[in-house]
Design a protein around this nucleic acid. Sequence first.
DNA 1: GCATTAACCACAG
DNA 2: CTGTGGTTAATGC
Length: 226
Amino acid sequence: MKCKQCVFRSVAAHTLDSRELEYLSVNCAEVRMKAGEIVIKEGSLSSHIAYLKDGLVKIHKGSSREGDHLLKLAGNGSYIGIQTILADRIHQYSATCLSEVRICFIDIRSFRELLKRNHEFSYEVILYLCRDELNYFDRVTALSNRQVHGRLAHALLYMSAMVGSSGDKSFRMPITRKELASMINASRESVSRALQEMVRSGMIWLDGRNIRILSEKLLHKISESG
DNA sequence: GCATTAACCACAG
DNA sequence: CTGTGGTTAATGC
């Protein structure tokens, strides 16, 4: 399969002309992976960056003592490991599949070469990185100055936006309680309790990983006030 | 002091 | 993997 025919082609890749697409074709490869498989591993050498065509992965980073923190979920159209283009040659975080996934691995030198050659391409990549960073600002501010309920509410809304269908407010959480806890810097027990309290107060319906947001308004309020 | 919040531990589905 | 209950430490009236 050539990049030219790929229906998952990124916004950035749409700026490439046919010669550049041909160049990309010979320097990337599509891979399919299953849930639980590792896309990139923190501390390993970054020879390629990954472009997520389809599926969901978690981005996580772990220190030996703290265990690992879930930094974000990455959906269709995400670049994984792209920061190593300009920074280290060692991956600074891990990415693990949460569902079946289709991923393109692009040779890092080729990617760099395209950035140099094609300004439109670079521009799109910069846009992506800016949006990504703003998302992080959002998440970091949500984590400070808020208590578990507020952080959890924020995370639920985040997941809803990430994996939920647009109309319906019910979805299946892609991660375990432990992972959810590591995402909002709380203990597993606190997350369990907070979830049950949200059920009791009628703002969500819950059955295992299946969740329905009953009062998005209230959840927003709690996510903002703490 | 007393109340609130949340982590840690243990144990049971 | 999850939920619950008891305990404990920190923090704010």
